[in-house]
Amino acid sequence: MITVRFFAMLKGLAKAEVKEYNVSGPIRLEELKGMLKKDLPALAGVLDSRSILVSINQEFAAKDAVIKDGDEVGLLPPFSGG
């Protein structure tokens, strides 16, 4: 199972803070985004935006990252702390 966490404006679009997805093996980040777009069409327009960063297990992930069963993925809109 992969846990996906949504923050700030993405939480509003997804209408959820956390979603869990069952996977049969490791998947690429692109594949996960495909699953998310299907499950949450409201996110389709923003998921590929370069301003949305992705974390895997709380570390920034590259575009070609691979996600394994048990991983926690964070979808991070542009930061505005400070």
Binding site: A8, M9, S55, G74, L76, P77, F79, S80, G81, G82
Partner: peptide, 13 residues
């Protein structure tokens, strides 16, 4: 403070 704004997952509403 510049690095905080750039790299820390905190959001303002």
């Amino acid at each position: 403070i510049t690095e905080l704004k750039r790299t820390t997952p905190i959001w303002k509403r």
